[in-house]
């Protein structure tokens, strides 16, 4: 009984948080203040433009030595037509594979759900951020070094391949 009540409460709380965060993110392309890297480190974040797609604020999360996985975050803006992020990859020397994921609250628990693709809205920005859509980089081949840049290749339905150099950052 207690558990059920607790879960219901959690779901309400997180649903509210997520709804607010998502709305803000789509409108302004901002990360929530609590989880944004500091402005000074943000300046070095990766940026790339191809066709209608502009990728900005691309970063790879610094994780402790021995960690198997990490995540990458970025803003993806489409000027004009909507597009769709189909795949992402990093060099094999860095990690085994990269998947598109979304963290979400389900029945009071945080769950990561793999995404077949991530929609980029018409004339809008999709924010890949903590606790939401992100790239999951799996099977790290070694310990990460803060500041080192990782080449991320993004494949879009319309814009094709876009490469962005994202720094590893402590967040």
């Amino acid at each position: 009984m207690t558990t059920i009540t607790r879960r219901a409460i959690t779901t309400i709380a997180i649903a509210a948080t997520t709804a607010g965060g998502a709305a803000t993110a789509v409108a302004h392309g901002d990360m929530p203040a609590s989880t944004s890297p500091t402005p000074s480190t943000m300046a070095k974040a990766g940026k790339a433009t191809k066709a209608n797609i502009t990728v900005s604020k691309a970063v790879v999360r610094m994780v402790p030595p021995g960690s198997a996985n990490t995540a990458a975050y970025m803003n993806i803006r489409s000027k004009g037509m909507p597009d769709r992020l189909l795949r992402a990859s990093v060099p094999k020397s860095f990690a085994m594979k990269t998947e598109l994921h979304r963290s979400m609250m389900v029945d009071g628990q945080m769950k990561m759900v793999q995404q077949k693709s991530i929609a980029i809205p018409r004339n809008g920005t999709r924010v890949l951020k903590m606790g939401s859509f992100h790239l999951m980089i799996m099977g790290l081949t070694g310990n990460l070094v803060a500041g080192k840049r990782i080449r991320i290749t993004l494949t879009f339905q319309k814009a094709g391949r876009v490469m962005v150099s994202a720094p590893i950052m402590e967040m």
Binding site: S34, T35, R61, V63, P64, G66, S67, A68, N69, T70, A71, H101, S103, M110, M112, M130, G131, H134, M136, I137, M138, E170, M171
Partner: peptide, 14 residues
């Protein structure tokens, strides 16, 4: 858990 790439490190960083 340590191989959690998003939620756990975000929380611990916060």
């Amino acid at each position: 858990f340590a191989s959690c790439p998003d939620i756990c490190p975000t929380t611990l960083s916060d």
